[in-house]
Amino acid sequence: MEVRTIKVFTTVDNINLHTQVVDMSMTYGQQFGPTYLDGADVTKIKPHNSHEGKTFYVLPNDDTLRVEAFEYYHTTDPSFLGRYMSALNHTKKWKYPQVNGLTSIKWADNNCYLATALLTLQQIELKFNPPALQDAYYRARAGEAANFCALILAYCNKTVGELGDVRETMSYLFQHANLDSCKRVLNVVCKTCGQQQTTLKGVEAVMYMGTLSYEQFKKGVQIPCTCGKQATKYLVQQESPFVMMSAPPAQYELKHGTFTCASEYTGNYQCGHYKHITSKETLYCIDGALLTKSSEYKGPITDVFYKENSYTTTIK
């Protein structure tokens, strides 16, 4: 009895394709271990004539594949690729409408935090270190965002349907971005203890939790000093293409032309909904596939993004 075979390709990165001759009487799992086709788990399936010449994702289970996976995804987590594939199996079914010149995501599976993050990423200057993220990001900007969303979920250790947080998501993504040249110098002034300067680099240099107003941050924000008295913390120097200011959701007025974009969060910790506000020729609110415009805006804002380049204080 002759062994019926077909020729397929296996890959971990969709760049390096490895030619395989597979036995049609055995499952993919018996031949390769966990195997995925377009995100779908085909591990328990036997090869079919229609699979001839198709590319299958496999887990990096030998040295060659491990090197290829690390170079593309910059992670050695053995569960990463499987999590990416199972997320992709959902995100490829989502709709990605162009809204006001940006790629958004039609609401499904509690994905409003991903839509808000995706919209924000198209408006701030950011370059990702893992080629996987950078490639998928370019495709997302062009309207094909399924891979990018699935990668975000995998890097953030999230599953489809789980509630997510924009600030946490951005923080994970910033860790995989090139923020080497970003720098922030802060000064804390206390009447009792004097003053202390701190220099922050990388992710810490672009994120701040405690106030939404970048102007206020430049002037000074009140913080408790270690001595128990009130101290003032203010920005001395900022070198970065953008800054992200966050605070627990509270009524906040966004003035046209003073910011790049913002995240609105309605609801409580267990259950809520994100919308995205962007400042173009007027203010726009993007909620999944829905767009509304207004000249002014007041609502429960939790993150505001500002364009920056270089700032030095005039406070002496």
Rank of each mutant, 00 (worst) to 15 (best):
T312A: 09
P78V: 09
W107D: 04
A154D: 01
I301Q: 01
L200R: 07
T313Q: 15
Q238K: 01
T278A: 10
F128G: 03
Q134H: 10
Y72N: 08
V236T: 06
D77N: 08
G228Y: 01
K95P: 06
V12Y: 08
D180I: 05
Y72V: 06
C261K: 03
K218N: 02
I6M: 12
K106E: 15
Q197A: 07
I15W: 09
T91R: 05
M24L: 14
D62E: 09
T103N: 02
Q30S: 13
D303P: 00
V22D: 07
P224S: 14
S263D: 02
T76N: 09
S181C: 12
V221Q: 07
Q20S: 13
A115Y: 05
Y73N: 04
G220N: 01
H74Q: 09
K106R: 09
N178K: 13
D109S: 06
L163S: 11
T260G: 00
N49R: 13
K158A: 06
V99R: 10
A150R: 05
P131G: 06
L81Q: 07
K255Y: 07
L59G: 08
A87M: 02
N309L: 09
V21P: 11
T76M: 14
V67C: 15
F80D: 02
N100F: 05
R139G: 09
E204H: 12
Y306E: 02
G299C: 05
N16I: 08
C285P: 00
N110A: 06
I124P: 02
A177K: 00
G220M: 00
M245W: 00
D303E: 02
M209P: 03
S86R: 13
A132D: 02
A250R: 10
L81V: 14
D13F: 05
K218A: 05
P249D: 02
K46S: 13
K316T: 08
A142F: 12
Q197H: 05
C285Y: 04
V8G: 05
N16T: 09
G53A: 14
G39Y: 10
N61W: 14
L88G: 05
A69N: 02
K280C: 13
I6F: 12
Y155A: 02
G202A: 02
P97L: 12
I124T: 02
D41L: 10
T313H: 15
Q238R: 01
T19C: 11
D165L: 02
Q31V: 15
T313L: 14
G299Q: 01
W107H: 02
Q222R: 10
V189S: 10
S240F: 00
I124E: 04
T43S: 13
L212V: 11
S79G: 13
T116C: 13
E281N: 08
F242S: 00
K218F: 03
D62N: 15
C112K: 03
H256Y: 10
S295H: 13
E253W: 05
L118H: 05
E52W: 11
Y311I: 11
R167T: 03
C193T: 02
A117I: 07
T198Y: 14
A289Q: 10
K95Y: 10
H51T: 05
R4W: 12
V189T: 11
Y306L: 00
L153S: 04
V221T: 08
Y297A: 00
C193R: 03
V67Y: 12
M85T: 06
G228T: 05
Y284T: 12
E162K: 06
K93M: 10
M245H: 00
Y72T: 07
Y214W: 09
K44I: 15
S279W: 04
K127V: 11
A231T: 02
M85S: 04
A247Y: 00
I301F: 00
N110D: 04
P249V: 12
H276E: 00
N268L: 14
Y265S: 00
P224H: 13
R66D: 08
Q251F: 13
L133T: 04
N147I: 08
T169A: 06
M245D: 03
K280R: 14
K7G: 12
A115H: 02
M24H: 04
L81R: 05
C182Y: 06
Q230I: 15
D13C: 04
I301G: 01
Y57L: 09
L133Y: 01
G33C: 05
L153M: 08
Y284H: 11
F9A: 11
Q175R: 10
T302Y: 02
H74S: 07
Q238D: 02
T199I: 13
S25F: 13
T232P: 01
T313V: 11
S310Y: 14
V203K: 12
T260V: 15
I152E: 00
F56S: 04
P78S: 09
S279D: 14
K233G: 10
Y172I: 14
G202N: 05
Y252C: 11
N100S: 14
H176T: 04
T75C: 09
F242H: 02
L65W: 07
E68K: 08
S263N: 14
E144L: 07
A205L: 01
M24P: 12
V236Q: 06
L81P: 08
L88M: 06
K298R: 14
T266A: 09
V67Q: 13
T19F: 09
K7P: 11
C227D: 01
V236F: 06
L102F: 09
H48W: 15
A231W: 01
F56C: 07
Y72A: 12
V304L: 05
V22H: 03
V99L: 13
K7Q: 15
L126T: 05
N187V: 11
Y208L: 06
D135M: 09
L290T: 15
T19R: 11
I124D: 04
Q197L: 09
E52M: 11
Y214G: 01
V3Q: 13
Q230R: 13
K275R: 15
L291E: 15
D180A: 08
D180V: 07
A145D: 01
H256N: 08
A40G: 13
S181V: 07
E204Y: 10
T169E: 05
Q123I: 04
T11M: 06
A115K: 06
P97C: 13
P131W: 08
I45T: 13
Y311T: 09
K275L: 04
N187R: 14
C227G: 01
A231P: 01
I277K: 01
P248S: 10
L254F: 00
N110C: 05
C261D: 01
A140T: 09
V206I: 11
L212Q: 03
T159F: 10
A247H: 08
G143H: 05
F305A: 00
K93Q: 10
D109N: 08
L121V: 14
A262C: 01
G143M: 05
G161E: 05
Y284I: 15
H74G: 09
H51G: 05
G29D: 08
A262R: 00
T211G: 08
G82C: 14
A142H: 15
Q98N: 11
K106V: 13
P249C: 04
W107Q: 01
T199N: 06
Q195I: 13
D287R: 00
N110T: 02
N110V: 04
G210I: 00
S213A: 05
W94T: 03
K93I: 07
R66E: 12
C156Y: 02
C227Q: 02
F242Q: 02
L290G: 12
C156W: 01
K219E: 09
H51L: 06
